[in-house]
Design a protein around this nucleic acid. Structure first.
Lengths: 120, 120
DNA sequence: AGAAAAGGCAACTTATTGGTTGCATATCCG
DNA sequence: CGGATATGCAACCAATAAGTTGCCTTTTCT
């Protein structure tokens, strides 16, 4: 039994965040998140970078699972995939939840113990 | 009138995401997000990295505004700051919102035009 | 067929990152 | 005071990232 090949490697949060950690890639992301597939050429206009630079950024996004590429004729179309962004949000939600939980505990501690716990 | 100095540079989303794009820093973040300030030494135990490596990661988090450091006696305490994480979530929410919006438009388009818009 | 359009691939350069070691400084404590 | 604790600072190193240029292949379109 060989391990089933995953079509998409399900990248960990760190890889997703790293892919988002660049202005150019965030810009590409916001353009693609309207659901419209776009070619590299289309994504390269309105940028001062070369087509190859844009290509590299798109590959970074693709390896993070944030976009998918499909070759159609002579062009390759990049399409937004929502799952990794959802995973990133979920991760941040857990961080926030732990923080909120800590605040709540502190509040209860103070309220339930007006003396602040000091025995003196 | 000189521009008022911001105590914290209010980093852009890309910088925040970049700071989150590393396993070690995510690990430090989850430890600090319980609200407890910790010294560098305390954050360096349970890691195979050197203290200086941890220090560098903490500085990256600090420059992204995610933690704040305060020197107390001979040690510097790092404390979690929730604002940048909230900003990151808000950014991802906007991406998701645009995506959802696009899906909704598509749904309406299909429902309002059962012929798919093809005149032939 | 032949030019134009869209990409892929590879080599190369520069800057940044992640990590290390060594040493100096500041505190705390008995 | 003097040792242990906690950190800061600087130099240095290897790997990766960001971006470029040059060239070759595949499609389209007329």
């Amino acid at each position: 039994m060989s391990k089933a090949r995953l079509p998409i490697p399900e990248p960990e949060p760190a890889r997703i965040f790293a892919a988002l950690g660049d202005r150019t890639r965030l810009s590409l992301l916001t353009r693609l998140s309207d659901g419209q597939p776009r070619s590299i050429a289309a994504l390269s206009v309105d940028t001062n970078l070369t087509r190859q630079a844009v290509t590299k950024h798109l590959h970074v996004l693709e390896e993070a699972g944030i976009v998918r590429s499909t070759r159609i004729g002579r062009e390759s179309r990049f399409t937004y995939r929502p799952e990794p962004i959802a995973e990133a949000k979920s991760y941040l939600d857990r961080v926030t939840a732990q923080w909120d939980d800590a605040l709540l505990r502190l509040k209860h501690f103070v309220e339930d113990d007006p003396g602040g716990g000091r025995s003196a």
